[in-house]
């Protein structure tokens, strides 16, 4: 193995290690509460927001878009059958945490 290759390998290992560390650090630190809150929504929107029905897929969506949609449901600016009634049970901070959680889920 040449020196250059070895250096590249070290860099890759390091990058991968940091990725693993930051991933697990996040899972531990934080957002267990958001994860728990969002899990409630999975009942209608499918496992981690992967819907197979007419309800929209939430997994992997832009969190700003999700939060905006919730605001519009709440303010009656977006047409809804039930979401305008559901969002009124949550604070803007709770909705933002849920939107952030779904934005980080893998769309299947």
């Amino acid at each position: 193995m040449s020196h250059m290759h070895r250096i590249r390998l070290v860099r890759l290992t390091l990058a991968a290690s940091i990725a693993v560390i930051s991933c697990s650090a996040f899972a531990q630190s934080g957002d267990v509460k958001a994860r728990n809150w969002a899990s409630s929504c999975n009942a209608c929107h499918g496992p981690n927001g992967n819907s197979e029905g007419v309800m929209p897929v939430l997994a992997g969506r832009n969190k700003g878009d999700l939060a905006k949609a919730m605001e519009e449901f709440r303010d009656g600016k977006r047409k809804a059958t039930v979401m305008h009634q559901i969002v009124k049970g949550y604070t803007p901070e709770e909705l933002a945490a849920i939107a952030d959680f779904y934005s980080r889920q893998v769309q299947k």
């Binding site: 999975n42 009942a43 499918g46 496992p47 197979e52 029905g53 007419v54 309800m55 039930v82």
Partner: peptide
């Protein structure tokens, strides 16, 4: 909401 009801049924069973 009939479509919603059936979507709900499939999604909650997947969940």
């Amino acid at each position: 909401e009939a479509y919603m009801a059936m979507g709900w049924a499939y999604n909650i069973m997947n969940d």
